[in-house]
Simulated assay, not measured.
Amino acid sequence: MRLDLFLWYARFAKSRAVAQRIAEAGTLRLDGRRIERSSACVRVGSVLAFPLHGRIRVVRVEALPARRGPPAEAVIHYSSLDPVTPKGVDVQDGAA
């Protein structure tokens, strides 16, 4: 499946044109490789890392969607691997 279609079907982008811009910006990584084209092929098991709305999204493709459905349907096609940032007190070096 094309990368831009997956981003649009999985609801990471509001339109296919926005999905193409995300893919062609040069900031998206597909299985660790920098991608600059929206026609790159996405497969089940592929890992995507890209900036979106001020944070880095890391997702694994679990299934290839057949259509752009409702958000509840879209989330079953990927699993989030986003790095978890700890909340609470900041730990400083040398603190006992």
Rank of each mutant, 00 (worst) to 15 (best):
I22C: 05
I56G: 00
R29Y: 12
R33K: 13
L30G: 09
R33F: 05
G54T: 02
R43Y: 03
G32E: 14
L52W: 10
R55H: 11
I22L: 15
I22A: 05
R34S: 14
L48A: 06
A19S: 14
R55M: 14
R21M: 13
I22F: 15
L48Y: 10
I22Y: 15
L48W: 08
L30P: 00
A23E: 07
I35K: 09
D31F: 02
V59C: 05
G45K: 04
A40Y: 04
R34G: 07
V47R: 11
I35Q: 12
R29G: 04
R21N: 12
T27L: 14
I56P: 06
E36F: 04
G45T: 02
F50V: 08
R34P: 00
R21I: 07
G45W: 03
E36K: 12
V47N: 00
A19H: 09
V18K: 06
R33I: 03
L30A: 12
S39F: 00
S39R: 06
A23T: 05
G45R: 09
G26E: 14
R34L: 15
H53N: 13
T27P: 01
A25D: 07
D31W: 00
G54M: 05
R29L: 13
G32H: 13
V58I: 13
R57T: 00
A40I: 02
G45L: 01
V47T: 08
I35R: 11
A40W: 01
